[in-house]
Write a protein that binds this DNA or RNA. Structure first.
Lengths: 203, 203
DNA sequence: TCAAAACGTTAACAAAAGATAAGAAAACAA
DNA sequence: TTGTTTTCTTATCTTTTGTTAACGTTTTGA
């Protein structure tokens, strides 16, 4: 194991315990698969057309997911520290995806690969808890996605922006506004107008 | 076990096997929890504010998911036969949801409850396969949701409609158009215009 | 069968969003 | 620092969508 990784393992283990609690023996097996690496600002964790081989836990930094359409980049998601990051659909099916994931700030990641998980799932000592871990993470993500779909269906872009201000102002302070705009499903120009309208009402 | 259910179990078992294969002993345990019931056209499987207690497998019929906003119904999803149906976020967290699920046609359902699943997960004979089953279903749903979020971000309403025509024309023949419109994120009037534009180009 | 309800289309007008371009402000890098 | 790039705002014009209402057709249910 990379000695550098040891510093960051406790915080990672603590986050994992929101989903499943490994005893020390299990944890040692699991941790033996972990790797640590950095992604420089503006570098990519994964690009469109590639098969996503790994899941990362973000020790520090932030990333954005984006798609390219007609030469424009459209931001789909943001991940901040203490969260997991992966192009899930590509990762789960091991097929090429359309998602790009780019570091917005320098990122420090603890990673494990799809192959690692398959090995752990095939290990009788680990299989049960790994299945459970996978289930609970996947269920968590379903709730996130459901919320996002519902916000597209039921809210106007302005309402989505306000909801984001209220629920996740931490995000807004770290993310350039034009990325936020496409995340909300509108153009940067349009978000600027929405903001203008909002602040005029306040005056 | 309800004798009426026996007729429909083989098709259900076959669909389940896309996710996990139960041996006969496991299957008998699992099947002992199943119930069958019908939902009449326009009746609700679940309404906003309720905790969703069950997952259903649709033997026949179709349903729509919708939210209410400012007195308007906004359709969020459709389920046809041979699919699973539940208000997942509410079901998984066992908290009241905002989703309504209504039968578009008379529906025949095979159901099992959240409590049933907890019992199966706690049964040492079943736990491993139930965890696995849950994981694989959840992963499948993640891919569905991801596709839907991406379609909102990257496509115009017209492109979303065309994509739906190409990928799921089976749906379109069974679903009233005004439900489809809100599913696409637009009004029924707007969808009617999009259709008019499309057919004029063809001429 | 027959009246009521639901559904789809169209029109007219208003509101919102997209596209493009220009300019100011802020962040970044040599 | 200084020059460059990035980011945000603003303006103009066009396109799209929403809103409301009217109308004809189809479906539904008593």
């Amino acid at each position: 194991m990379d000695p550098q990784i040891a510093t960051h393992l406790p915080i990672f283990r603590k986050q994992l315990e929101k989903f499943v609690v490994f005893n020390d023996e299990e944890w040692n097996v699991f941790a033996s698969y972990l790797k640590i690496r950095t992604v420089k600002k503006k570098d990519h964790l994964i690009e469109s057309g590639q098969i996503c081989k790994e899941i990362g836990f973000i020790v520090s930094g932030s990333l954005r997911f984006y798609h390219v359409k007609d030469g424009h980049e459209i931001t789909n998601y943001f991940c901040l520290d203490q969260e997991f990051v992966s192009s899930y659909s590509s990762f789960l099916k091991q097929v090429p995806g359309h998602t790009n994931i780019q570091a917005l700030e320098e990122v420090l990641l603890i990673t494990f690969t799809h192959q690692n998980i398959q090995q752990l799932l095939a290990n009788p000592l680990m299989a049960y808890k790994m299945e459970r871990f996978g289930r609970l993470i996947a269920e968590y993500l379903i709730c996130c996605y459901e919320e996002r779909v519902v916000s597209f269906i039921t809210l106007t872009p302005e309402e989505r922006y306000i909801a984001l201000l209220e629920s996740n102002s931490r995000l807004l302070q770290r993310i350039p506004q034009h990325y936020l705009a496409t995340y909300l499903g509108i153009t940067p120009v349009s978000l600027s107008r929405i903001r203008k309208r909002m602040f005029e009402v306040v005056k």
